[in-house]
Design a protein around this nucleic acid. Structure first.
Lengths: 151, 151
DNA sequence: AGATCTATATATAAGTG
DNA sequence: TCACTTATATATAGATC
């Protein structure tokens, strides 16, 4: 009889080349890591903090009892407070409301939707994709978001 | 024949009552958690920090590239350009191969095509659309192509 | 992007030295 | 507490939807 899958394959612990595989693996293993962290803290009554930043720059965290409390314990001596904690956000709630209205009036088009919708957590990746378009199309070798001082 | 051990036993995820078991489990699982964290950062090029405080109050940590840098990112949302992991996130040769295959199978979509394939001069208008995406997403009021010295 | 499935790789509970 | 063993529980790569 046919095997339905080859099952879990062994992989080398080195950077995954294929972007799609990397994305999938990142999601699965991030979930796995957080689960292990939660189990450790529950089983052993240990304080645990885990912070992960995706290749796309999204930050995920887990903490028991909280990330901050664990960090405070970790930090010894003086901690330099950030000199610049200006909030850097993209669309405001008002922007989203406005877009909803316009959409309801049948005024939207594909790229506006791409720009405005689903931007809660995904905007960074979308923006990077747009950046990649720019970079590829216009042959700007090392264009990055931070050149605009907005990130 | 006799089994030499009952093997790994299922346990409930709740505080371990026996002090000795708790100690042993803590050591093993702490090592396992750090290993998973290291694998995640290697496989995906992700920045990861893990801090664990044992019930006895001893602090262990793992960080890539360092606990401090990840904490800084977590607390401020800022990042230093030299350790901007997003720059690592470009298309690899494997991605291009994958894209070719998918396109041959009729699986492609406009966005991937736009991102991955080389675009001719006639797609400049689409680049302008991408520019609009950038401008809208990032609230950069007056971003224009000539700022990059390419037009 | 996320859920689900299969088969297999890996982690680990319990025991021993 | 560390190192090793065994048998089993769990995580997950790859594929599909």
């Amino acid at each position: 009889m046919e095997k339905k899958s080859r099952g879990r394959q062994k992989i080398a612990i080195e950077k995954i080349a294929k972007k799609k595989s990397l994305q999938v693996t990142f999601s699965k293993r991030r979930a796995g890591l957080f689960k292990k962290a939660r189990e450790l803290s529950t089983l052993c009554g240990a304080e645990v903090a885990v912070i992960v930043e995706s290749p796309a720059g999204k930050v995920f965290s887990f903490g028991n009892p909280s990330v901050d409390s664990v960090i405070h314990r970790y930090e010894t001596g003086d901690f330099c407070p950030q000199e610049d904690s200006r909030k850097k956000y993209l669309y405001s709630m008002e922007d989203l409301e406005e877009h909803k209205k316009e959409k309801a009036m049948g005024k939207s088009n594909w790229w506006e939707d791409l720009c405005v919708e689903n931007l809660g957590l995904e905007e960074l990746e979308e923006s990077m994709a747009a950046m990649q378009v720019l970079r590829n199309n216009l042959l700007i070798p090392n264009l990055t978001l931070d050149q605009f001082g907005v990130l």
